[in-house]
Design a protein around this nucleic acid. Structure first.
Length: 500
RNA sequence: GAGGGCGUAGCUCAGCUGGUAGAGCAGCGGCCUUUUAAGCCGUCGGUCGUGGGUUCGAUUCCCGCCGCCCUCACCA
């Protein structure tokens, strides 16, 4: 403790001294409870009703302006801010002396009468101020001034590293950050409401899995001691949810974290939130309609509009969204017909388009690369790209009109994939063959190839009805609907290296 | 993993071609009973991310390391 004190800066030492002084004066600096009658916005939203009434509020001290015998300050609760007028005359000499030991960052309870100052600000004329929690570590002091309706921030807490590492501070001093996370919560609620209203059942499936599957990705590996067993953090929910469809549920969804052992950037975090939905007796065209309707329902609920600004662009979610077969999209953006071409022909095409590829890449991989370079960046307005090559989609059912393709689509917005969907492969023999092909790819060095899941095949052999499946990246959807540039801005605690 | 940028007081930032650091806010001490980036006077506060090197002398130049951001690669 004494060693720790040596490291404290003066401000922090000072606060601890005040803490001791308060205790000496018989004031407990960490209260047990405070009963408040209202929150700040209830008063500011309806001043007439509350004017002259005595109310009690609780919140964090965000500013202090002492004029001697009178101090003005603002407290902030979850709903907003309220100015307090604290006068020696009103609260008494002894209480005013104690109040001088309060700091910005303290959490207080305030009881008083609602009035408006000469300057016109709704204020609490405090008769009783109670310390609820003493702040021992100074907060960044952000000052906000409004001139001609324009808000200017002074000394904003803006260091991204500090903001992500100390999100609790970020949330206190940066109001827009709080709003993003409130909206995130509302988006997920709206999605759940939509799916529940359709009669689908929300379920939970294992996060720790002995065989990881459902996507092409490298997993996190862990170990169960009692079973002496290697387990993987799931990279997708897919194979378990489809077992549930085989088990007789006709519509199931899960919202939860997936984990992929990959790099971190603006659109990727190692743990991220995914919604997966499976509906029996439907196919991917059904799922396209559903995605359109669901995203629009959510957008209307949380933003009140189908038009939304994203990083300087305007996105219009109004259905119907463009539906574009992959090879048409490729032809449109490259001027080349790339359908049914072999590895060599595609390699030549890539070369002609100045897209670097590596030796030994499969046709699917080259197509994927050309797509990413030439098509994806152009998919600004919502677009369904559909009908992918079969080798890229080992869990999707072959296209009913073209066995080289699968019935699959991915919704794109602002040049970014926000989901993935297909008519699910329910032919266990074809599924086994696809797994075998994946095993071959893995043995050839593709670390992200799917693993063969014998039990999943067993479920398909029992019989899974025709089924439509969907995965949606919740974080990316939240980014879109909150105009956030980085996935870190929509995840409370993004993955970071430890500080020391 | 590669390339680029950044890291100075609690917060936001200055610090030119090397001479051991400044401002505003916050803090502390005053004055002040309707202020609102309150004001005025005074004052405290920094192993300049970290470890080496060059130099009489390094926040400044060089190298290693740590962390963050951006771009690329990998991926959703």
């Amino acid at each position: 403790m004494s060693e720790e004190l040596l490291e404290l800066n003066e401000v922090m030492k000072n606060r601890r001294e005040k803490l001791a002084k308060l205790r000496q004066a018989g004031i407990e600096p960490f209260a047990y409870k405070y009963t408040r009658s209202l929150v700040a916005s209830q008063i500011t939203d309806d001043f007439e009703t509350h004017e002259g009434k005595t109310v009690s509020l609780a919140g964090r001290l965000m500013s202090l302006r002492s004029m001697g015998k009178v101090t003005f300050c603002h407290i902030m609760d979850e709903s907003g801010r309220m100015q307090l007028y604290i006068g020696k005359k009103q609260i008494g000499d002894e209480a005013y002396e104690a109040f001088k030991l309060f700091d910005i960052g303290d959490i207080v309870g305030a009881k008083g009468e609602v009035f408006k100052t000469h300057a016109g600000e709704i204020t609490l004329l405090v008769s009783e101020i109670t310390l609820l929690t003493k702040n021992l570590r100074p907060l960044p002091i952000v000052k906000e001034v409004e001139r001609d309706g324009q808000k200017t921030l002074y000394d904003a807490f803006s260091d991204t590293e500090q903001r992500y590492r100390r999100r609790y501070v970020d949330l206190i001093v940066n109001q827009p950050v709080r709003e993003v996370f409130v909206k995130r919560s509302r988006i997920i609620t709206a999605m759940r409401d939509y799916l529940d209203a359709k009669g689908y059942l929300e379920v939970e499936t294992p996060i720790l899995q002995p065989i990881y599957g459902g996507a092409a990705a490298r997993p996190f590996t862990t170990h169960h001691n009692a079973l002496d067993l290697t387990l993987y953090m799931r990279i997708a929910d897919e194979l378990y949810l489809k077992r549930l469809i085989a088990g007789g549920f006709e519509g199931v969804y899960e919202i939860g974290k997936d984990f992929r052992n990959e790099g971190i950037d603006r659109t990727h975090n190692p743990e991220f939130t995914m919604m997966e939905l499976y509906v029996a007796y439907e196919d991917y065209t059904f799922m396209m309609d559903l995605v359109e309707e669901m995203v629009c329902t959510i957008a209307k609920k949380v933003n009140g509009s189908l038009q939304l600004p994203y990083q300087g662009q305007t996105i219009d979610l109004t259905p119907p969204w463009r539906r574009l077969p992959l090879f048409e999209a490729l032809e449109h953006h490259t001027g080349m017909d790339l359908y049914a071409k072999d590895d060599e022909q595609l390699a030549a095409a890539a070369k002609a388009l100045h897209i670097p590829i590596e030796k030994g890449w499969s046709a699917g991989k080259i197509l994927d690369e050309i797509f990413k370079e030439k098509v994806e960046p152009n998919l600004i307005q919502p677009t369904f790209i559909c009908d992918y090559p079969v080798e890229l989609s080992p869990l999707a059912k072959r296209h009913r009109q073209d066995s080289r393709l699968v019935e699959r689509f991915e919704p794109f917005v602002v040049g970014r994939e926000i989901g993935n969907s297909f008519t699910e492969l329910n032919d266990p023999l074809d599924q086994r063959a696809r797994f075998e092909a994946q095993r071959a790819a893995f043995e050839a060095g593709d670390e992200e190839a799917h693993q063969l899941d014998e039990d999943f095949l067993r479920a398909l052999e029992i019989g899974m009805p025709p089924t439509a499946g969907l995965g949606m990246g919740i974080d990316r959807l939240v980014m879109l609907l909150t105009d956030s540039a980085s996935i870190r801005d929509v995840i409370f605690f993004p993955t970071m290296r430890p500080e020391h």
